[in-house]
């Protein structure tokens, strides 16, 4: 998935010299290929994220196409006001790349974890929010983010969970749910995003459930969500993000208004991580491990 990200970035930058990569002194190894092949388009803005995001707005104002990279804890969270005021307010063509979202930096504690980024960015007018699940979605999201020519936040979470799709996605339709597998219509359907699509697929195989992936969280097509609700008996949403304001919230906002549906939201409870440990350990702490999630879905089915 990270290779797909790097490949897409290099490809876009080679095709368009106006593409610039700005990083707040992060991305060790990730940008080796970019720095080798597009050295003049690489800008290390220093450990100064607020200025970096403002600067990206300035670059976009004079015709450049900045991609701004940081850990999700910093881009978008630390720099949320710059994103709102300097970028989204004028719908400037800037792609914000938030890496390590969720509990990727499980050993580093709260400063490097981010489970509020979707909620915060969703509420900024006009800002689109993408959350790819595997390398195919990543490629499609990067291509879409460039082609959209507007303000986009692309969330990069746990990246080594394997493919959920079997082939490349032709062109990402913003707001569409992508069906990953078919299951029984007399059971709930799962709608997941990012790292949790893999979890959803694993559980769905055991319980024979339909799974949709949501690579775009904003926009989200009302028709697609309602179609998913009609195709199953209730919905389960899964995300490595707070229960407040994320995918589950976005789905229930639509169903409650357009097609009242019973929805089980699975995500991070209203709490910070308490302990240090592996990624799996932290998923467990937040009740997002496969065993707990499978049991909750099973109980919801029953």
């Amino acid at each position: 998935m990270r290779e797909a990200f790097s490949n897409a970035l290099v490809r876009l930058a080679l095709a368009d010299p106006k593409v610039l990569l700005l990083t707040g002194d992060h991305g060790y190894a990730l940008f080796d290929e970019f720095r080798k092949r597009c050295p003049s388009q690489y800008i290390n803005a220093g450990i100064a994220e607020q200025n970096m995001v403002g600067m990206a707005a300035g670059l976009a104002r004079v015709g450049f196409r900045p991609f701004v990279y940081g850990l999700a804890a910093f881009v978008p969270i630390r720099t949320l006001e710059q994103i709102k005021l300097d970028i989204a307010h004028d719908h400037l063509p800037v792609v914000l790349l938030g890496d390590g979202a969720g509990f990727v930096y499980s050993h580093l504690g709260t400063s490097h974890q981010s489970t509020e980024d979707i909620a915060c960015t969703r509420a900024i007018p006009g800002l689109e929010v993408l959350s790819p699940a595997d390398r195919f979605e990543m490629t499609a999201c990067m291509d879409y983010a460039y082609a959209a020519n507007g303000s986009v936040y692309l969330r990069m979470g746990k990246s080594d969970r394997g493919d959920v799709h079997t082939s490349p996605i032709d062109a990402l339709q913003p707001g569409s749910l992508l069906k990953v597998r078919d299951g029984r219509a007399d059971r709930p359907g799962l709608i997941a995003t990012g790292s949790m699509v893999r979890t959803a697929v694993d559980i769905a195989q055991e319980q024979n459930l339909t799974v949709w992936s949501a690579p775009t969280i904003k926009p989200l097509l009302i028709d697609d969500v309602c179609a998913a609700a009609r195709a199953s008996t209730g919905l389960v949403t899964l995300e490595e993000h707070s229960l407040l304001g994320g995918l589950g919230a976005a789905i229930t906002e639509i169903t409650s208004e357009h097609l009242p549906t019973r929805v089980l939201r699975i995500g991070v409870p209203d709490q910070f991580s308490k302990h240090c440990g592996t990624y799996d350990y932290l998923l467990n702490e937040h009740r997002l491990d496969s065993t707990t999630v499978a049991r909750r879905i099973y109980e919801f089915v029953a």
Binding site: A57, G58, A60, R61, E81, Q82, H89
Partner: peptide, 20 residues
């Protein structure tokens, strides 16, 4: 050229314009 009033924003945007 900029949306300001929340302070400390415009200068950074100006730095980006100058860089561009």
């Amino acid at each position: 050229e900029v949306t300001s009033g929340s302070l400390g924003h415009g200068f950074s945007v100006g730095v980006g314009i100058a860089m561009g």
